[in-house]
């Protein structure tokens, strides 16, 4: 390292320090002004105070799954198991049965998703030929204490201990 390099190095070090110092000064000024009731154009921090304040979930965001229903309240799902087939994390499990309507033929009696495996890729939504499954509930807080509580039945609906 030559003396010239050293000098340049020192200057850059100082410049770096000045950048953070400027951030500190500007943000501190904004915080202080707001604390005494003067509105500034921008706030001192970009933080969103999460549980109290929430960000708008974008419309195409993939959140917890739901099964859509027909007008009569039964699921649109015909248990074709294409979601099961396409699922890369093997987290869906469906049990099918005869539907009373011979036109519909097949209906799920149990539709279970293992959230501990689900990677929220949305392939199931894309694979569905009936537009029966969507990931647009906007529910993001589905954490549970146990793995087994993360196996949620989205049809026939929340069972005991599986509330969502």
């Amino acid at each position: 390292m030559t003396v010239k390099d050293g000098a340049r190095f020192a200057i850059e070090v100082l410049r770096g320090g000045l950048i953070t110092a400027r951030h500190f000064a500007v943000n501190m000024a904004r915080h202080s002004l707001r604390a005494i009731g003067i509105r500034t154009r921008r706030t001192g921090a970009v933080t969103i105070q999460y549980p109290e304040a929430r960000k708008q979930v974008p419309s195409r965001h993939r959140s917890l799954h739901r099964l859509l229903t027909r007008p009569d309240g039964r699921p649109r799902c015909v248990a074709c198991m294409l979601c099961l087939t396409v699922c890369p994390s093997e987290c869906i499990s469906v049990e099918a049965d005869e539907d009373p309507d011979p036109e519909i033929q097949k209906t799920p009696i149990r539709f279970e998703i293992d959230l501990s495996r689900c990677c929220f890729c949305g392939f199931c939504v894309e694979a569905c030929p009936e537009d029966a499954i969507r990931m647009d509930t906007g529910i993001l807080e589905w954490g549970r204490l146990g793995r087994d509580d993360l196996r949620i039945e989205i049809w026939p609906g929340p069972g005991p201990g599986r509330k969502i």
Binding site: T20, H23, F24, N27, M28, H31, G44, A45, V46, T47, Q49
Partner: peptide, 9 residues
């Protein structure tokens, strides 16, 4: 201070 430097709270 670190928060203020980094635009946090």
């Amino acid at each position: 201070e670190s928060a203020v430097i980094q635009d946090r709270i």
